[in-house]
């Protein structure tokens, strides 16, 4: 149990229940191992930031949390990931249902080539969350409001989503994810393609969303991690080096690799 003690997840000060937990998760691409056994817990209504140099496996780990890696043929996952105590890699668990509960926002804004309205109701329609027009209208309004986009687009809901600016597109994608009423939202470097103003907008948004959702966010940007998250996990070369309260990680890292990264010696 050596690796486990090394990766010892630190119980945070928060007293929220555990929403998701990873136990000795290993990911292989063909014969190559990309993750060497990750243990981490994700608490309800917290924002967990994952940082680390490129290729450290943080995005790979994020994608295992709602089984997006299934779409890659050569990818294989070992270990256990529990959502409310249920193993999400259990063959009896349905991947479609899982992704409805664990939504995802991607690095590059990827609105569908449809209207803003259609983009938002895409998920609810699939999962049968509403049937009547007024129900859909309500979902669109609340979702866009929560994504802070409502005021900007309420007069042009039926124009294509691809016509929005980059930051607006990303907020549309967040609204799209929120509309499904997931329990967890995964965000894969959601601001990397955006300018600073749009980034600030989204960071604010993430903080607000924390009240209703559990959020895991991968970011390249350490300041961002410091600003939006309660806890931070540092990945390096496929290992989860350490995880703990964000403040502590940034002020008093226990591992020298973390120290090296956050002080900018490499990364």
């Amino acid at each position: 149990m050596d690796s486990m003690t090394l990766n010892k997840p630190v119980q945070a000060a928060v007293t929220q229940p555990v929403k998701m937990s990873a136990r000795d998760v290993k990911v292989f691409y063909g014969a190559k191992r990309a993750l060497h056994g990750v243990n981490v817990d994700l608490y309800q209504n917290e924002v967990l930031a994952m940082i680390g140099p490129s290729g450290c496996g943080k995005s790979t780990f994020l994608r295992t949390l709602n089984r997006m890696n299934d779409t890659i043929d050569i990818c294989r996952v070992e270990g256990k990931i529990l959502l409310d105590g249920q193993d999400i890699y259990d063959p009896r668990l349905d991947v479609v249902q899982l992704r409805a509960r664990v939504g995802m926002v991607f690095q590059k804004p990827n609105p569908f080539p449809k209207s803003i309205y259609e983009n938002v109701i895409y998920g609810p329609k699939l999962h049968g969350l509403a049937t009547r027009k007024d129900e859909f209208d309500a979902i669109v309004e609340t979702s866009l409001k929560r994504a802070g986009l409502w005021n900007e687009v309420k007069d042009r809901l039926h124009e294509p989503g691809t016509g929005l600016s980059g930051g607006q597109q990303q907020r549309l994608c967040i609204a799209r994810a929120v509309a499904v009423s997931p329990e967890v939202i995964l965000m894969d470097e959601p601001c990397s393609a955006l300018d600073p103003i749009a980034t600030a907008h989204i960071e604010e948004l993430i903080d607000e969303l924390r009240e209703s959702f559990t959020i895991a966010i991968v970011t390249h940007n350490m300041q961002q991690a410091a600003r939006v998250s309660q806890r931070t996990a540092f990945f390096h070369l496929g290992d989860l080096v350490e995880v703990g309260d964000t403040e502590e990680i940034f002020t008093n890292p226990r591992d020298e690799r973390t120290q090296g990264y956050i002080t900018g010696r490499y990364g």
Binding site: D84, G85, Q97, R101, H127, S181
Partner: peptide
């Protein structure tokens, strides 16, 4: 713990 019955389950 028994999974809470949510919107999606």
């Amino acid at each position: 713990t028994a999974a809470p019955v949510s919107l999606h389950t």
